[in-house]
Design a binder for these strands. Structure first.
Lengths: 240, 240
DNA sequence: CAACGTTCGATCGTTCAACAATCCGGCGTA
DNA sequence: TACGCCGGATTGTTGAACGATCGAACGTTG
């Protein structure tokens, strides 16, 4: 084993030693706080307060803000600073338009149907069923997200995965808008209503995928998403 | 006309007075230079030289770099600076995977088929035919880009338009890789070969769209893109 | 009292200068 | 030739500064 084997094995671990810049860490942190709802939509993010809170320079912070603005998680208004995005109902509609195209397309074009990618779908469905049985509807929500990410992952395309991740992040913003507008706490009964019916529909689609019936899964997903959009949009219209 | 009419008419013009920050302008400028090939793939962009050339601060420049890195037009390596991206053949394949999903999906889900959106497709096709007749194959290339943008525009979704714009920008990088690797100038005969056959195929698809045969147009587009990918990938493989 | 002009503090946009960390190439040594 | 080391150059990050702009409070005027 003179050379080639070493380098190949080590080259595979190259990703492990990628150091991260401060900007990246700040961006990741803020993104997390935003999509988890700890920074609710509409929150004004003053540069100085954030700088003091995070202990970084203002310039570093501005780079992170710029990035998150590009991801549509923050809105950037000249001389007025940044605030957490508050998706409009038009945004929700657009989000679902894109979602239909990406998810349905990814399932229909699912390339090589690698074993691990298919099992990831099944795993997400099972996690959702378990969480539903436990009555943990918040956990059902995240499992649902993972299910859709796994579905899109079938296309085995890094760019599609990225697009889907950004899409779901923005969609979470929409959910937070409903949870925080007007009344304070989020109604657990309402989130239950959102996810309840989808647990079994997820199962159905996952089974179709496992059986290689991609076209059937795609069309099922199509109506699935149309229903979800309608449900979300009516809920959106209720609180304005 | 006491009030309401004024404000409505003025509110429509609100977009005209959006001022642009320096970072935005620098970003737009650099993006343009990159996709036009004036900054060929692989070019190292030193911060100080760029700062001196553009007459902006280093921090401002770094924000622009960060943005373009997020768009995958620049690669950012810690402590090594940024350079114009050089898409690999794997990138090209991924790009086309995404392209198939977005374009085909957009055509198939073409929502309201607004008059202006359909005519935009026809216009791009005609511009391509005209340029082909004139033998201006570079112009044929840009018309081709506009054709695909118009196709995707049928979905009438800002996010899909953005995604497509970024996708095409990255794809241009791939073309520049072929044009600049090894030998210097780009071979006009080769670019002619790339676009020649697609002029009439564009026309066919556009006619199908105009006749409302969206499904037929979508399937035609599917094979169209598969052919284009194969052609580009073999050309890519030739020069390595 | 309602509409308008002014002032002022706070915040943002941008620049500049500094320093540590890191990279890269060259040089000497074994 | 391979290795270790050093120094210049570039990047990463910070801190401070200054003008520009915003928003709200205040006073003025009709």
């Amino acid at each position: 084993m003179t050379s080639a084997q070493w380098v190949d094995r080590l080259a595979a671990d190259r990703s492990l030693l990628e150091r991260t810049s401060t900007v990246e860490r700040v961006t990741d942190l803020l993104r997390q706080r935003i999509i988890q709802g700890e920074l609710p939509p509409g929150t004004q993010l003053s540069e100085v307060s954030a700088k003091d809170a995070l202990g970084v320079s203002r310039n570093t912070l501005r780079e992170a803000f710029r990035l998150l603005g590009h991801e549509r998680l923050l809105v950037h208004e000249m001389h007025k600073g940044v605030s957490v995005r508050k998706p409009s109902s038009a945004d929700v509609a657009d989000l679902y338009r894109l979602r239909r195209i990406i998810e349905v397309g990814a399932v229909r074009h699912a390339a090589t149907t690698k074993r691990e990618l298919v099992t990831a779908v099944a795993r997400a469905v099972r996690a959702g069923e378990q969480a539903a049985a436990d009555g943990d509807w918040s956990e059902v929500g995240t499992a649902n997200m993972r299910f859709h990410e796994a579905l899109v992952g079938l296309a085995d395309s890094p760019r599609i995965n990225d697009a889907m991740a950004g899409l779901l992040a923005e969609l979470r913003l929409a959910f937070h808008v409903m949870s925080t507008d007007e009344r304070g706490g989020l109604d657990p009964e309402r989130t239950r209503g959102f996810y309840e019916s989808y647990v079994e529909r997820n199962r159905a689609i996952a089974d179709q995928v496992a059986d290689g019936e991609l076209d059937a899964a795609a069309t099922a997903l199509e109506t699935y998403l149309a229903d979800a959009e309608a449900q979300l949009l009516t809920a959106y219209a209720e609180r304005t």
